[in-house]
């Protein structure tokens, strides 16, 4: 059998292998059992692991996360699914009020080995809550790890790492990458190392930083720059958005002197702003141009007819890089 897998299949493999490894790992959420999850990430798990480890829950996001916190306090390793990240706002008070702080307020006597998976981001012709990118809410909250895969292979290894992490992880899955392409994802991969940025393309002329579904568009822009402008861009993926690996970013920008940050999230007070600030701290005197941000606009996520007008595309990213290079 081929090891080529979509992100959905790769995530399914990670869950399966982690549940095989440890009986305390279990999944819960709306329709994760009989239906195999709204995007089929948990497909077939109920057949192999049974209803006690693959729990279809009532439609109650706050309750799902709250109950998961209790489970984790008592030593289980729950993987909770929100159907869309936009539905997690119902559970936000649990995430902010308990998930992120239990370790701190119990001086480390309790830790929550809990993963909350959420599909996020645009590109699937859905609307508002079903397409938006609000990772800043989670990344802004101390005590959480915010992990965002960009392809099938790191989706598999990052989910394994998230499940094994003693800390709670908000695991944001870019819907646009769920089935868009396949990668080699064999069984038995080791977990990824969290908190490390990943240099996906080497280059000396400009640093381009992105994550999630925007990574592919950024890589595409880098290829265009190479072909049309003879510019070699270094492309950095941030599979752990928070805590941010500013060191890797800083080292790259100190080499290239120029940076473009690409996110789906809206511009203002967003992840791109934080990354730009860290670049200023890490590499100010090396900068040849202001850091450029290519992001979603400061508007609610538009409906599908205008969805692509909202999302950064390779053309916008390429243009931003050219402006930065010409500065």
């Amino acid at each position: 059998m081929s090891d080529e897998r979509t992100m959905v299949e790769a995530l399914n493999l990670a869950l399966r292998e982690e549940m095989d490894r440890d009986d305390n790992v279990m999944v819960l959420g709306e329709d994760v059992g009989a239906d195999g999850g709204i995007f089929r990430v948990t497909k077939g798990l109920i057949d192999d692991f049974g209803e006690s480890r693959v729990m279809d829950t009532p439609l109650a996001e706050a309750g799902i996360v709250g109950v998961s916190v209790g489970m984790a306090l008592a030593g289980l390793n729950p993987v909770a699914e929100m159907q869309f990240s936009g539905f997690s706002y119902f559970a936000f008070h649990q995430i902010e009020g308990h998930v992120a702080r239990m370790r701190w307020r119990s001086r480390g006597r309790f830790t929550l080995p809990l993963v909350i998976r959420m599909p996020f981001g645009g590109g699937v012709r859905a609307l508002e809550h079903h397409s938006e990118s609000r990772e800043a809410y989670f990344a802004h909250t101390p005590g959480l790890r915010t992990v965002i895969p960009s392809g099938p292979r790191n989706a598999c290894t990052l989910l394994k790492a998230a499940i094994r992490s003693p800390d709670p992880v908000i695991f944001l899955e870019p819907k646009a990458a769920y089935r868009a392409f396949r990668e080699e994802v064999p069984e038995g991969l080791d977990p990824a190392q969290l908190d490390k940025a990943d240099i996906r393309r080497k280059g000396a002329d400009i640093t381009m930083i992105s994550y999630g579904a925007m990574l592919r568009r950024t890589l595409e822009a880098a290829e265009t720059l190479a072909e049309e402008d003879g510019v070699e861009a270094e492309v950095i993926d941030l599979p752990t958005l928070a805590p941010l690996d500013a060191e890797t970013i800083g080292a790259s920008v100190r080499r290239t002197g120029r940076a473009v940050v690409v996110t789906e999230a809206p511009l203002s007070f967003g992840p791109a702003g934080e990354i730009a600030a860290r670049i200023a701290e890490e590499a100010f005197v090396y900068l040849e141009a202001p850091v450029n941000r290519v992001t979603g606009w400061d508007v609610p996520m538009p409906f599908f007819a205008r969805e692509q007008s909202y999302l950064p595309d390779a053309r916008r990213i390429t243009n931003a890089a050219r402006v930065t290079l010409a500065y």
Partner: peptide, 19 residues
């Protein structure tokens, strides 16, 4: 946070049953 511990307690009971 008033009331938010109730679902945590429900999770503690879940773990007791699960184990």
């Amino acid at each position: 946070i008033v009331g938010a511990q109730v679902s945590l307690g429900t999770g503690l009971a879940f773990a007791a049953k699960y184990k």
